[in-house]
Amino acid sequence: MLYGSALMIEMDAIRAVLFACQHGGFSQVVVESNSQVSINMVKGERVVAMEADSILFDIQTAIREFQK
């Protein structure tokens, strides 16, 4: 098993989509997820789980590259 939890899978999927959109030249992206915990962590509304800290850093860095 590559991941220790469903949270890690969700966070990695969000990161992968954002990176693909960056490389595709998109300036605006809407990300949907069925994981409210993941969305709340990305939005800064929930304490970050230690296991997802490095992935969340990548996500927040990628988000800055988009207009919206």
Rank of each mutant, 00 (worst) to 15 (best):
M1V: 13
M1Y: 14
L2N: 10
L2Y: 08
L2S: 04
Y3K: 04
Y3G: 05
S5A: 03
A13P: 09
A13T: 15
I14E: 06
I14Y: 10
L18E: 03
L18V: 10
L18W: 05
F19W: 10
F19E: 09
A20Q: 06
C21Q: 14
C21M: 15
Q22W: 08
H23E: 15
H23C: 09
G25I: 12
F26H: 02
S27V: 15
S27K: 14
Q28T: 15
V29L: 14
V30Y: 14
V31P: 00
V31K: 00
E32P: 05
E32L: 11
S33F: 12
N34D: 15
Q36R: 03
S38Q: 07
S38K: 03
I39P: 01
N40L: 12
M41L: 08
V42D: 03
V42H: 04
K43W: 04
G44A: 01
R46K: 05
V47M: 03
V47K: 12
V47S: 12
V48I: 14
V48A: 02
M50V: 11
M50P: 06
M50N: 10
M50E: 09
E51N: 04
D53K: 06
D53R: 10
D53I: 12
Q60G: 00
T61W: 02
T61A: 03
F66E: 09
F66C: 07
Q67T: 07
Q67R: 03
